[in-house]
Simulated scan of single mutants.
Amino acid sequence: MRRKEFEVPIEEDCEPFLRERHDGVLTFTGEDGWPKAVPLNYAYLDGSAYFHGSKHGEKMKGIAADPRAEFVVYESHAFIPSYFSDPYLACPATVFFRSVRMRGRIEQVEDPGEKAKALGALLRSMQPEGGHAPIDAEDPKYVASLKGVAVMRLDIEEMSGKFKFGQHLPDRRLKQVLDGLTERNLPGDPRTIEEMIARHPSSKRQEE
């Protein structure tokens, strides 16, 4: 990663972020040789990303021909207007965000137990209140559904995280942006302020 100040550790930041989110974009090479980008729901489980879908279609054909893929999970936290720190130039305008990129190979999951575990994790991330019978490979009412659905597992070979929250800003500009966010107070701004303060090098200097 070119901007090392935005790079974050896998266990401390990337994995909690992946467990928090439930959608991203899968990129792979299509059957026609062109790159494809497909938005998907996912579950991060036991160090792998799981997806589900139809057993047929462009995505399945492309992955069968070439299982190499990348998956990106991204969350935009706040747009930072240029005038927070510069009344004239547009250049300082930016977006603060969290993102994780994974690279690996996709395997079709055939084991009903693994399918049930992955689909259960996926549903819990989107429907945490429950309201359904547990997805169990031994439950006769789920057997046909588990057999008919495709479940894919991305075996991750590389992972990197980029969390941009103004770590590069000098103290004066940091204060200007913090003041601007405090005054604006849009949804997402309080969380952005917390991340900025916690991740800025000045906070680490104070701890020392």
Rank of each mutant, 00 (worst) to 15 (best):
A121Q: 04
I135C: 12
L119Q: 09
V73G: 08
Y142E: 05
I135T: 13
Y88E: 15
K115H: 06
R103P: 03
T94N: 10
K115L: 05
A90W: 01
E138G: 05
F84Q: 09
A90Q: 09
A78T: 10
A121F: 04
F79E: 12
E107Q: 01
R98T: 06
D66I: 02
K115Q: 07
P128Y: 05
A93F: 08
D155W: 00
P128Q: 11
Q127D: 08
L154N: 01
E70D: 08
P92I: 02
L122N: 11
S76K: 03
Y88W: 15
I63L: 14
E114T: 02
V72P: 14
K162Q: 14
S82L: 03
F96S: 12
F97R: 04
D86N: 10
R153I: 04
D139N: 14
L123M: 13
P112C: 12
A65D: 03
K164H: 14
G161A: 13
I156S: 02
E158T: 03
E107V: 00
G161Y: 08
K164W: 11
A133L: 07
G120V: 04
V143I: 13
L122E: 15
Q108G: 10
G104I: 01
L122R: 13
A150C: 14
G104R: 01
I156V: 12
E75D: 11
K141A: 14
R68V: 02
K141L: 10
R153Y: 06
G148C: 02
K147S: 15
L89Q: 15
E157D: 13
K141G: 14
S160W: 07
K61H: 11
S99P: 09
M126R: 14
E110C: 00
A64G: 05
E70K: 04
L122T: 13
I106C: 00
L89Y: 13
